[in-house]
Every structure is written in structure tokens, then in C-alpha cells.
Write a protein that binds this DNA or RNA. Structure first.
Length: 959
RNA sequence: GCUCGAGUGGUGGAAUUGGUAGACACGUUGGACUUAAAAUCCAAUGGCCAUUAUGGCCGUGCGGGUUCAAGUCCCGCCUCGAGUACCA
């Protein structure tokens, strides 16, 4: 046996204070902050408040990868900066801890989702703690905590007890509605309600049974029960929202989705459509996000028009249509109904009946997905019925076609083939006439849909009018004959709020004789019960149907065991649970007063914090959480319990950090893996290789790969230059793509400060950018350099010089202060990291070890690299944390730098270079340049121009 | 199809809003230190030409335009990415 090797590296085994020992420093300051409650924040302070919020995470079992903390780092830098600027900063964190993965895991293993969730949260917390965030953990919330979901249930009850008064344009207590019904019925009530609500008088109302009244009130409540066609996913055993479906399959798992009728709780978000739209103008959110919400709400202005069917057997039915082009009404040569339209069966003639029925059946069979993917094929069938044109009184045929959607507008359209391409294609296909109502426009090839250049013709009283005038005129005429009115239509649908899942908030609802009742507020929360299994029951009821303890005793006001029901006042509870967005729709307000058991939050707390000043999170929530939470906030505003109608003043969407995946290439039909350079001309399948098995030059650790993937243990590796080279591709960072980089490992190797700075350095916050571990050595080197600059001697003792810094030292420092402050204010964190590197390089070259320079430099640096800043701050003799030290003020006198040459240009198409002494200040330069300019201008007989000096830059001349 | 966003070295990206394009970093190359490696430090690094230094020309997806001056503004294209999808 040989003697054991000497240690490879002397430096690391003999650590002195010379080394930048980030592991020890970071661990020490993290526990210091925790012990001293450094970031605990009070609701009473003389300071100005600032609220910086992150989208709270779902604690998944995979833990954090380096992409997750990007937004948290940015908000933490901003929070720390604001503390230095003297603000009282609320910077909380919590967990969106209800969700499907924990439930799926429970189904597979039988382990309660709460246990999984708890374990995941613990791991998340450990990972977050290592990054040195300045969260106030005393304010942590978890959506799955009964103390929290009590208030989610509470908001639900408030929604149930409210209706939307369009005259007041706000939500009102349902009691006010009942009073009006008792006095005057519903004919004069202008509410957002079910369009199929019948009209009734006061005496009608007073004559209704309690059950009938309750049923009618559901037409008005802001959350209501209704039978709806929903997206049912058999594999997950649950209903999905539209935004949980991607390309016709479930977002999670990719399972097929079908249509199914179910009784569901629904949120009447459509009541707030206009306010959700208007509010966007008042908030500083990214334009693409605003656009996404605007499109989602989909406001369109037009008119409703009622056509009556031609009388047959003494019956004539009204068909209401919505159109954005009422001006083209004289061009309507047919009508089209959605196949699901309720009048289809009534108006179809005997001769057409079999054809129509066959068509309706055929379309019902086609899944939503087929219908969407096959938009080119034109299909439809004639009903045999005719409608009477409201003005020309001509008969126009009524067709059905699947290009008309039952779910939008009224499910029926007046078809104007000359003005709409879909109507045009339909008319051409079925040989329906295409009358032209546009002056001087050729419609022989395609429809003319341009509003701007429209002059109406062949249209009776609309002839010669422009689009705008014609619209106004035709609406006037329609109202005269009672067959239509101006109308604004929204694409936004009411949001289904029920999920057939276990791991979510239970509804505080029980049923008496089939009608829903709310559990009294003082008995909240209604706890999630234990169940034997997490799947739907044999009878197809949601998982809560498996609970033994699951009915509400109205006498004792408590949940009872099903088998202990011994009197008649025990009623079944709602078995659905709330969707993921329930808990996330008000958590930002709860952080203001998270332990309050009397109220959702105290008025003192919300009046102090008011609203979020900075919200950072991903754009993927544009039409989900970020829309629903605005809806809840507006509702809570109507109730008078929040002071702001919009909860987040400014929002930033951080871009995703992408992973770099590695691939090996297997030749088709063989078990040989071919190196990247040799695959050309061969048919190969790319196979993901774990990125940890690849070195910086893209060479694969073959033995490691064989161990990791035993099925390739016997594979033949075809090498180039003696090594196996992998291919690379940038993809979303994900466990399944084996490209995940763990922040813990980065912290071990380079430290949290390096990780924080590097994540910022990678690129602009809003932009997607690939992770590259190799690049972190840049910022790591910077921190080491800074450390070394203030340590000297054989043992590397901490050292600062007491003597006054030079002008040059100050210049370097103040450049950093100015730029970093500007960059933080503009959220350009990437460029400020460069600024630090330049600054420290300069100071290092100047051999500046001055205390007077180091102190302000550390405060400037501390938002980015809090641990090293805190350590050096402490070595300077400060007893208090650096976190609240005032941000240094930048002094402009240090920034005046004169360059030697000033190119001067002006209209004479000439260019001069002026030599000026370096010592000149801006005023002197301006004078000198003006004097020069004057001479030149006068030589050419022109008026002199104003000269603007930009310090350190070129001379500007403005006319 | 529609809406939005983006195209700058080998790579990630700077450019104070029209004013010396390529800051800073990675990577690469060369050098110093070392038995060697690591670490550290120094130098070079958009392309082409010239070279004794000074230098010259081209260059921000493509084609035009405005301007003394354009990565930046205007017009017309091309490519890529994201979202949305028969919305009457």
C-alpha cells in the first residue's frame, strides 16, 4: 500500500481569517437575525410604510431549485433597500398549501396530505433560510391552516349574502334586495343576475314559499349554485377551470377532459367585469399582463336585436342576438343558432327534423377539442324556419351551425355575410345570398370587415351613414320598435368555484331540503374532516363523502357523526371543496394582521398598510389568481373593509430561470449511444442525461451515467476524441428534464451572497434567462476581492485605514452609490452588480482601505449581499445590524469628470473637437463650449444654440 | 389568424432615452507563481486591413427614411418567443 496522499489543498485545511469563509459567516448572521427578530415589523410606526410582497409558493415535494427564489431575491433587495431608506417594511412569506399534488400523493400512499404538506414546508423553510431573506416569519400564513381558512370561508359567506346592484355599481347586502322584492318585486331591480330570472311583482314574491324565495335569491347572490356544463376530468376525478386546461387536456398530468353537467358553486365575477377593466388603468402592472386580462374580460360594444320567427301554427318565437355591427343589419340574409340553442327543437319544421336532430347529435358527440382543432370545416343545417327582419320585414332562413357558440352572447347571431368572414364562408358553402350593403366595396371574393372606411348603402334609413352614425341610428330605431337596444357584452364567464377534491377549503354550507344554508360565522372554521380514502365515493360523490363525521346539527351548531344523527335538525354538508385560488385571493391582506381571531384583519392594520406597494410574481397567473384576487378585493372594498379597490399598486413579473438540459443520443434500433459530434446522418433518439453527470466542457461521466441509468449499463458508447460529448438544450427547469440546479449546493460551494448577486446578474428581472453555474465565479471572485481588500498581513487580519480617503476614492464610491440607488429604484438589479465589481476593482487598484469608504459601500451592498455586509459592518465595531443603517447620500461633486475631448456638432454639418483641461467643472466647460460655438456660429451668420453639459459625457446641443 | 414582447461579439448581457456601441461577467488565448494541479494575479479578446507606434474600413436581424449624429425615432419586411383562439 502506498502512503496516503497529502491534502490536495493547503489553503482550505488551514483556514485563517484571511479567507472569505462564507459558510461560517452566513450561518452566523442567519441565526443572529432569527434570534434578534431583526426583521420583525410592527403595525404602528412613525416611519412611512412599504409593503413588498412575493407570490407565496405551493410547497411541492421537489423542493426549491435555483429558478424559484429569483423573485424573492429581487423583493428582498428592494425591501432591504427601503429599510435603509427609513421605511417601515412589511415583507412577509407564507404557503399556498392546499393543492393537488399532496392529494395525489395521499391517494397513492394513504398518507394524509397535511403530513406531506408539513414536511414539504419544513424543507422549503430550510432552503429559504439559507438564502438570507429578511422575511418577518412571525406573520407566516398557510392556506390549509384552519385559522387561516376560517377567513376564506368567511369571505365566501359574505359573497353568498351579497348581490350586485348595477345602479349603485357595487355589491349590497342581500337583505336590501329582499326588502325591495317585498315592496316592488324585481321588475325595477337592476342587478347582475341569472338572465333566465322570471319577472315577479311584490305580491308574487310575498306569495312564494320560503323554498321558492331561496331559489330565486340564488339568481342574485354573488356566489350561487347552478347546474352547469363543466370540464370534467375522469382521470383526476374533478372539475377543472378553463385555465387549468391546456390544449384540451388537464394542465396537471395531461389527462383528457370532457363536458359534463354538474351542480356547482359559481362566483358571479361577471358583475365586476367593467370595474376589473377600469381598474387596470389605475395600477402599475406590466402591459402584457394588463393585455391578457383585458382580452380575457373581452369587452365588446354592440347591440342586442330581437328577431321573431315567422308565425307557424299560431306560434312566433323571439330570437335574441348580440352583434357588434348593428349598422349592418340590412345585410343580414340568414340567422344562425348554436346547435345547443333551446329554440332549435321548437322551430325546426317536420321536413327538416331528422336532419337537424342528426346534426345536433353529431356536434354534441364531438369534444370541445375536436371542434376547436377543426375550425376550417364548415358545417350546418337548415331548420326549415324563417325569421322576420325587424325593418325590411323580409323572411330570412334560420340555420344552425357549430361556428356559433352557445356560451357567448345569446348563442345566436344575425348572419351578415358581406361584413363577416365566417358568415361569408357559411353563405358561400350553402349557397345563401350575399347582399352587399357597402358603398363602392367589392365583396365578390371576401367579406368587408373594416369599420373605419364604411359607408352604408342599400339599407333604407342607414344609407350614406358612416359606421358610427349608423350604429347610433339603428339602435335608436330598434328601441322605437322594442326589438333591441345598445349593449356591452363580455367574454368573461362566471367562475366555477367547486372542486371534487379533498385537500381544499370545505364550504361552510349545509343543505335543507335541497337549498343551501350558510353556517353561522361564529362557528367557523368548518374543519376539513378525516376520510378513509381520498378518492370519490362509490356513488360518485366527492372525497368528503367518505367522511364519517360530516353533517351539520343546526340545534347544537356543530358537526356531527353521520351515525349519531338522532333528531331532525341534522342536515348534510356540502361535499365539494374550494379551488386553489380561494386561499390566494386575500392572503396579502391577512399578512397585515395574521393572528387576528376576531376579524379577517383589524381596521387599524389595514388602514396602516393599505395596499401592496410592490408585488413580484410570475405572469402565468395573469388570468387566474391575479384576476380573481382583484375581484375579491373589489368585493371587500364594496363591503367597506378594505380601503383600496386595487390591492397591488405595482407588480413585476419576474422571468423564469431556465435550465440547460443535457442529451445523449441513442441510435435507433440499437443500444449504442453516439457522441454529439458523430450523430450527423444517423437516426437518433435524444435522451435526457442528468446535468450533474456532465462537466463544464460538455463531457459525460460515462460510469456515472451507467449507474444512474442501469438499462444502459451494457450500452456501447461511441466516443469522439476519447470522450463522450453531450448535446445541450435550454428548457424549463424541471425534475423530469434532469436539469435542476439545487440552491443548497450553490450555497455550499459559493455562498448565499454569491447566489443572490448572481441571480440578479444573469439578466433583467423580467426576462427569461438560462442558468449557467460556471458564470457564478464572477460574482464570487468579486466578494472574495472585497474581503481581501480589507484584510491584510500574514494572518489576514481585518484592517481599515483611518486616514482620509482621496478624491479618487470618493469618486469611485459615489459612482457606486448613485448608480446602485438608481438601479434599485428602476428594478435594474443586473447592472448594479456590475457597478459593484467596477467600484471594488477601482478601490482595489487605488489600494483604498479607508474606513470612510468602506462604511457607505457596505450599506449600499447590503441589500444584495447581506451576510458579508453584516460581517464587515460588525468588524468595523458596530453593535447593531446594518439592516437599518441609513442609505448613504450620493454627492454629485465627486462625479464631475471631464473628458478631454468634446465633439461639437451643429447644423453646419461640421464637427469639432475641443480640448479642455481635465480640471474643468461643468459650468466652465459650458462656458468654454459656448464661447467656441458662438465663434463658429457667428462665422456662419447663425444664432448660437444652447449647450448642455452632461457630466462625464459628450456635449449636447439643442436647437 | 389576432394580441404582446424580443432580435447587439463565442455566451449572458451594458449603453444615463438621439451623443465615443459592446460596460461587467463567463468562455477562450498567452504570461507570472507552482515539481504539478487548484487558487490568485497580469495581458489580449467584435470582424477585416495595416503595423514601427500613431491608424483605417466595416459592424446592433433585413431594406429604406429623418437627423450634424440612429442599437435607440419613422415606414416596409424577416425571424424567434409568449399568450389567445370560430367572441358574432
Amino acid at each position: 500500500m502506498k502512503a496516503p496522499h497529502k491534502p490536495r489543498c493547503f489553503g482550505s485545511s488551514q483556514e485563517t481569517s484571511m479567507q472569505y469563509n462564507f459558510r461560517e459567516i452566513e450561518a452566523r448572521w442567519q441565526s443572529y437575525w432569527a434570534e434578534h427578530n431583526t426583521f420583525k415589523v410592527s403595525n404602528t410606526s412613525n416611519k412611512e410604510k412599504f409593503y413588498a410582497l412575493d407570490m407565496f409558493p405551493y410547497p411541492s415535494g421537489a423542493g426549491l431549485h435555483v429558478g424559484h427564489p429569483l423573485g424573492y431575491i429581487a423583493s428582498d433587495i428592494y425591501s432591504r433597500y427601503k429599510r435603509h431608506k427609513g421605511f417601515n417594511v412589511l415583507h412577509p412569506m407564507g404557503y399556498d398549501s392546499f393543492g393537488l399534488p399532496a392529494e395525489q400523493y395521499a391517494i397513492q400512499t394513504g398518507q394524509h396530505p397535511a403530513i406531506t404538506t408539513e414536511a414539504n414546508i419544513k424543507r422549503y423553510r430550510e432552503q429559504l433560510d439559507r438564502l438570507g431573506f429578511s422575511f418577518d416569519w412571525d406573520r407566516e400564513v398557510r392556506t390549509s391552516d384552519p385559522k387561516y381558512y376560517k377567513w376564506t370561508q368567511w369571505v365566501f359567506i359574505q359573497l353568498f349574502n351579497s348581490w350586485y346592484d348595477q345602479d349603485m355599481d357595487k355589491a349590497q347586502s342581500i337583505k336590501t334586495l329582499i326588502e325591495r322584492f317585498e315592496k316592488e318585486g324585481n321588475t325595477r331591480v337592476n342587478a347582475t343576475c341569472d338572465p333566465k330570472t322570471p319577472e315577479f311583482s311584490a305580491s308574487d314574491w310575498n306569495g312564494f314559499t320560503e323554498k321558492e324565495k331561496k331559489k330565486l335569491l340564488l339568481h342574485y347572490r354573488l356566489t350561487y349554485l347552478a347546474d352547469t356544463e363543466v370540464n370534467w376530468c375522469p382521470a383526476l376525478g374533478t372539475v377543472l377551470a378553463n385555465d387549468e386546461i391546456v390544449n384540451g387536456v388537464s394542465e396537471r398530468g395531461g389527462h383528457p377532459v370532457e363536458r359534463k353537467k354538474m351542480t356547482q358553486w359559481i362566483m358571479r365575477i361577471t358583475a365586476y367585469a367593467q370595474r376589473l377593466l377600469d381598474g387596470l388603468a389605475t395600477i402599475d402592472w406590466p402591459q402584457p399582463l394588463k393585455d391578457a386580462q383585458t382580452n380575457w374580460i373581452g369587452r365588446s360594444v354592440g347591440a342586442t336585436v330581437t328577431f321573431y320567427t315567422q308565425e307557424s301554427d299560431g306560434a312566433s318565437y323571439p330570437i335574441e342576438v348580440f352583434t357588434t355591427r348593428p349598422d349592418t343589419i340590412f345585410g343580414a340574409s340568414f340567422m344562425t343558432l348554436a346547435p345547443e340553442h333551446e329554440l332549435v327543437a321548437k322551430i325546426t319544421t317536420a321536413a327538416q327534423r331528422s336532419a337537424v336532430e342528426a346534426y345536433v347529435k353529431a356536434t354534441a358527440k364531438r369534444s370541445e377539442r375536436d371542434r376547436l382543432s377543426d375550425v376550417k370545416t364548415i358545417s350546418g343545417v337548415f331548420t326549415g324556419a324563417y325569421a322576420v327582419h325587424p325593418f325590411s320585414k323580409e323572411s330570412i332562413p334560420i340555420w344552425i351551425g357549430d361556428y356559433v357558440l352557445a356560451g357567448y352572447g345569446t348563442g345566436a347571431v344575425m348572419s351578415v355575410p358581406c361584413g363577416d368572414q365566417r358568415d361569408y364562408d357559411f353563405a358561400t358553402h350553402f349557397n345563401i345570398p350575399i347582399p352587399n350593403i357597402f358603398k363602392g366595396i367589392d365583396i365578390s371574393e371576401e367579406a368587408f370587415a373594416d369599420k373605419e372606411n364604411t359607408v352604408i348603402a342599400n339599407s333604407d334609413f342607414l344609407d350614406g351613414l358612416s359606421y358610427e352614425k349608423a350604429v347610433a341610428r339603428v339602435i335608436e330605431e330598434l328601441e322605437k320598435i322594442g326589438q333591441g337596444e345598445g349593449k356591452i357584452n363580455y367574454r368573461l364567464r362566471d367562475a366555477v368555484f367547486s372542486r371534487q377534491r379533498y385537500w381544499g377549503e370545505p364550504f361552510p354550507v349545509y343543505f335543507v331540503d335541497g337549498t343551501p344554508e350558510m353556517i353561522a360565522e361564529e362557528h367557523l372554521p368548518l374543519h376539513l374532516p378525516e376520510v378513509a380514502k381520498y378518492l370519490p365515493t362509490e356513488t360518485g360523490e366527492p372525497p368528503l363523502g367518505n367522511a364519517e363525521v360530516w353533517a351539520w346539527d343546526t340545534i347544537k351548531n356543530s358537526v356531527v357523526h353521520n351515525d349519531k344523527i338522532d333528531h331532525e335538525s341534522v342536515f348534510p354538508l356540502e361535499l365539494n371543496t374550494m379551488p386553489g385560488w380561494a386561499g390566494s385571493s386575500q392572503y396579502f391582506n391577512r399578512y397585515m394582521d395574521p393572528h387576528n381571531e376576531e376579524a379577517i384583519y383589524s381596521q387599524e392594520a389595514i388602514q396602516y398598510w393599505k395596499q401592496v406597494d410592490l408585488y413580484i410574481g410570475g405572469i402565468e397567473h395573469a388570468t387566474g389568481h391575479l384576476l380573481y384576487s382583484r375581484f375579491w378585493q373589489k368585493f371587500l372594498f364594496d363591503l367597506g373593509i378594505v380601503p383600496q379597490e386595487e390591492y397591488a399598486r405595482k407588480l413585476i413579473n419576474q422571468g423564469m430561470i431556465l435550465g440547460t438540459s443535457a442529451f445523449v443520443y441513442r441510435e435507433k434500433g440499437s443500444n449504442s449511444l453516439i457522441s454529439l459530434g458523430l450523430i450527423e446522418g444517423k437516426e437518433v433518439d435524444p435522451i435526457h442525461a442528468d446535468v450533474s453527470l456532465v462537466n463544464a466542457s460538455g463531457e459525460l461521466d460515462i460510469e456515472g451515467f451507467k449507474k444512474w441509468r442501469p438499462e444502459y449499463a451494457d450500452a456501447k458508447f461511441v466516443l469522439e476524441d476519447g470522450v463522450y460529448k453531450v448535446g445541450h438544450e435550454v428548457e424549463k427547469m424541471s425534475k423530469s428534464k434532469y436539469n435542476v440546479v439545487n440552491p443548497d449546493e450553490i450555497c455550499d460551494t459559493y455562498g448565499a451572497d454569491s447566489l443572490r448577486m448572481y441571480e440578479m446578474f444573469l439578466g433583467p428581472l423580467e426576462q427569461a434567462k438560462p442558468w449557467n453555474t460556471a458564470g457564478i465565479t464572477g460574482v464570487y471572485g468579486f466578494l472574495k476581492k472585497l474581503w481581501k481588500l480589507y484584510h491584510q498581513g500574514a494572518n489576514g487580519e481585518f484592517y481599515v485605514a483611518g486616514d482620509a480617503p482621496t478624491e479618487e476614492n470618493f469618486r469611485s464610491l459615489h459612482k457606486v452609490i448613485k448608480k446602485v440607488e438608481e438601479d434599485i429604484e428602476n428594478f435594474s438589479f443586473n447592472t448594479s452588480v456590475s457597478t459593484f465589481m467596477i467600484g471594488v476593482n477601482e478601490l482595489s487598484a487605488q489600494k483604498c482601505q479607508s474606513r470612510e469608504i468602506l462604511e457607505p459601500l457596505l450599506i449600499t451592498l447590503s441589500p444584495y449581499a447581506p451576510h458579508i455586509a453584516e460581517e464587515l459592518w460588525n468588524k468595523l465595531g458596530h453593535q447593531e445590524s446594518i439592516s437599518y443603517a441609513p442609505f448613504p447620500e450620493f454627492k454629485s461633486e465627486y462625479l464631475v469628470e471631464s473628458t478631454k475631448e468634446y465633439p461639437i456638432s451643429f447644423n453646419g454639418k461640421m464637427r469639432f473637437k475641443l480640448e479642455l483641461p481635465l480640471s474643468m467643472g461643468p459650468n466652465e466647460i459650458e462656458e468654454a463650449v459656448m464661447a467656441h460655438e458662438k465663434t463658429q456660429q457667428q462665422l456662419q451668420g447663425r444664432e448660437p444654440k444652447k449647450v448642455i453639459i452632461v457630466p462625464g459625457k459628450i456635449v449636447n446641443i439643442v436647437g
